[in-house]
Design a binder for these strands. Sequence first.
RNA 1: GGGCGAUUAGCUCAGUUGGUUAGAGUGCAGCGUUGACAUCGCUGAGGCCGUAGGUUCGAAUCCUUCAUCGCCCACCA
Length: 865
Amino acid sequence: MNYISEDIFPKNYKHLDVEKKIVQEWDKENIYSNFNPDSKKKIFSVDTPPPTASGYLHIGHVFSYSHQDFIVRFRRMMGEEIFYPMGWDDNGLPTERRVQDYFNVKCDPEEKSVENILEKIKENKKSSSALKVSRNNFIELCHIVTTEDEKVFKELFMKIALSVDWNHEYTTIQDLPRELAQKSFIDLYEKGFVYNTDSPSLWDPEFQTAVAQAEIEDREMPGAFHDIRFETESGESFNISTTRPELLAACVGVAAHPKDKRFKHLIGKNAITPLFGIKVPIFGSELVDMEKGTGILMVCTFGDNVDVQWWQENNLDTRIIVNKYGRLDEVNFGSEGWESKSPEKANIYYSRILGKNLKQAKSEIVDMLSNKDNFENEPALIGKPKEITHSVRFYERSKTPLEILSTRQWFVKLMDKKELLIEKSNQIDWHPDFMRKRFENWTENLQLDWCISRQRFFGVPFPLWYKLDQSSKPDYNNPIVADISDLPIDPTEDTPLGYSESDRGKPNGFIGEKDVFDTWFTSSLTPQIGGKWDKNDNFLDKVFPYDIRPQSHEIIRTWAFYTVVKSALHHNDIPWKNVIISGWVLDPDRKKMSKSKGNVVVPNDLIETYGADAVRYWAANARLGSDTANDEQIFKVGKKLVVKLFNASKFVLNGAPESIDIKNITEPLDLSLIYLFNEYLGQITKNMENFQFSDALNKLEDFFWNYFTDNYIELVKNRSKFNDYGQKTLSGLTTLRLVLENLLKLFAPFTPMITEEIWGWVYRNKNSNYKSIHFEKWPEKLNLDFKDISSEALIIAREAIGAVRKEKTNMGLSLGAEVKEVTIIANKDLQSVLSKVIDDIKDASRSQSIIIKTDSQEGIRASID
RNA sequence: GGGCGAUUAGCUCAGUUGGUUAGAGUGCAGCGUUGACAUCGCUGAGGCCGUAGGUUCGAAUCCUUCAUCGCCCACCA
């Protein structure tokens, strides 16, 4: 029998050096980048979230990506073939803005691409105005900017030991994701799931684009009710209440509750709007809240969603006054649709707000309404505006409230698919399960189809052209759809089949669609992008539906929702079997971390101070779906665990047998430890299979600290380390090494660095092949001949040694003090078990002799002589 | 207004299908060690298990009410 000698161990554990070394080795050996789709093993696939490349890194990333990695590493050790790709999302406004600022350029789809865009930018450097560049050139520039960010991200992800397969790395501006987004559109078009229409939809005047319901957020804003006197045709007056007097010129109706006695007599009559003198119908609607304002209100084109509903239901006129820039557009009172009692006056009043933004227009209108010169008797504005706070809808990135404008947009039909989507969600396992409710809640409450067109410049273009008739009017109902084999295309630069470039914009020619997709339209294809949809034989089929989709809860309504939509519509399938929801990282005051609050924690500092293993340990302590505080204390505990693993391993491996033969495990205490280990292993494995990594880790720690290090090692120390008891010593040494190795494997998903380091001491130098603990098999129950031994022996021995320690403490003795005689007093039922391990207890007590006394009391006590 | 979650020791959290005296880690206090240990061990203090009802032989656990906190959504005239 050969034994391991101590010269293979370093003296101290320096996490910075070791972790750096290990990351380099993993990278050099490419140990995680070797997914084989044809493997006979069961495939485990991850629909990894692609971080926004122009974002910044915070501890929340480390938190949630660690969660995935615990699961992935466990599955890998379970012998599964891991598909763990990584993407970077560089679509969208953040990148667009950065590229604009960085190069002083502006994307213009009308521009033609040039070869040497960087030179052009150099030439433009002195100019103060932004250089107009084509969409393709803009994409080129995005690559340049985002590549740098992606490098930083990748470095961090490697630093925290994510076992990502870097052979399957993509960015959303690459050709393949753009191609697949266009292909997705064409597939939906052919299936009749998309349509375009010119109808009221949500519009952001700041970014000048349509937005989808999912991108809206409500913000509490100050506002004011303005009470404005209206009159009926016959001169009866009444006061409406509005927070948006600037839309007075767009008024198309007046509504009151049909049961409201105050206004019942008005319903069916017509009102005349003040200043503009427009005749509008007064109608009843259950939707009117009698308590709010004056209980009677004006309906405009379009103040809010309900206005749209009333407009449709009551066939009201349309009076558009707000344009795409959020300014008051030109109108002509007296012309058709704008018939006024006194058009001249109306036009004069309107000229004061023409071209103004909505805020300016509001104060002008209020000014005019309160000027008594504008009215025969009293001014139309009654009293002072009553200030209120109300919630206003915004596009989440914008500072200007949303408007409802009539614009032509493309939509994915969803309103008729709610049931289907909920059915799909029910086929998915959500972790934790209650997160499913968020999905259902959102789906049931959907009000609009998914608006997928954005009037932005950077993004994936629609693969569409429109035919022009003789008068150059586009035929939106019969678009020319690109051929799948030509994708990706840019319709502002590429020419449709059957036309030549000279036909562009000409009568009987064509025009290209300028709009780009909502970025979620591409992001919702991460499963298809990762699986290279139809590009690479049946690669997608091998990994789809994915096993897990890890993500956080605030994007259930967007990313999770749209991904389910896409998979349902394209494949009539679920995209993944499990959704793994990580909570948020809160600061110690339980506030959500955000850049604006300035409470963001930079992960690099934490990794430097505590080590990646300790940071991962902290992440592993939070259950799925629950938020966690950024608590320094837990990092310290993690670091303590790492150091303990290091020291315990050094102690166990020093002098351990070079090979393990389980037949050498013969002693009752040793068998008992293994019996208990088997019990723990069963629970830990079950937890890991159910994605309950924090429960698994807690159990593992419990065994490691309370049984293995604090007690078993102490009990067996003398027998195995400092005495030669022959077979008994060998049994102890073998057990120590066997259990340690199994524990290291169980810790490996959580603390992959320290476990890899220790594993390397013993295995790395053996042969030239790199041998990583992370490709070892997850432990299975150790089948030994336990005879009549169960976990009880160890538990009793632990209690007995505890009693001895307590007694020594009471007597003021050091725990290591040699004593003459120890008496263990125990319940007589325990006697037979106790006697099997009594020699180990004697050794650990450092006593010359030991006696067992029995009585009928519960538990175990000790006395020392 | 609708939905979801949380409420257990100073702090962070466990508590399995209801079952003795409610646990862990951390922090605090005291003692003892420091021969695998940037340690470790022992001891101690500290809980009306958010509130009020109910079911039950028995409730932190099941039901109902309310309160507080957080999140998602809706309302936005």
